[in-house]
Amino acid sequence: MKSAPFEHHEPTTVDEAVSLLESLDGPTILSGGQSLVPMLRFRLANPDVVVDINGIDSLDYLHEEDGYLRIGALARHADVEDSSLIDETYGSFADVAPLVADPQVRNRGTVVGSVAQADPKGDWGSILLAHDGEVIARGPDGERTIPADEFFLLPYDTTLDDTELITEVRVPTPAPREGSAYHKLKRKTGDYAMAGVAARLVLDDDDVIETARLGMTAVDITNARATDAEAHLEGERPSSELFEEAGGLAAEESNPESDEHGDAGYKERMVDVLAQRALGDAAERAGLVKRRVSQ
């Protein structure tokens, strides 16, 4: 890696980091480096000043507290993958963690860095959207909570301010009859998604869908929700037909572009397929029994 020269700062507390962000000229935050370092290597990013947050031990956590699953800024993808908290209850987390990049990248890259990167092909944004997640940011004026829905603006662009540091992303702990799942289509290990869909369903006592969320990867300018499909699901009982209709709606709502991952028509169709698969798994994890009826 032959980057352009830059100044390297290593704060050990959040306060120190925030004051560096405020006082330095055009600082760039470095966490796992799995997006930033490739950009430095290609000289697509040429920051003069880098604030490396890897020394802020207080940001290295992944736990449940006060009704939230909280993921600190230094929790790596691999920490999620290996965590005993992450099982069927957090189905979409359990699905996504081993599907992000490859083991080497997962050992360094962070969930928060991934959200901050706001790559529409990134997987975590869809999970956050499907779980009504929040982004916690610290800046010179203190702490701010940004709903995931309001966070992503454009590819690589968010509502975060240059002087702000994300300390945490969090999602509410799952309801008793909740299930979630993530399905990702990729060409090989380490490849970004051709398309991905996160689904979350909350059922009431009559097995009726109370809340439905669908977050989509790589098929729009940001990670995006499929709100028409969600509305269609809510108030209904899960069935193949319902999920087929929801898959179709999600596909219509998606806006993929043709590229080396396939043409737009194919990607729309895959949104349909992946949404149906993810909804099926989510329903199962919410407590229903799923059966294949032929073959």
Binding site: D207, E244, G247, Q276, G280, L288
Partner: peptide
């Protein structure tokens, strides 16, 4: 080409019966 839904059914418990 196939779509997925064709081959899946859900079973519901209790009062609400099955699909």
């Amino acid at each position: 080409a196939h779509k997925p839904a064709q081959n899946v059914e859900f079973e519901f418990d209790g009062a609400s019966g099955s699909a």
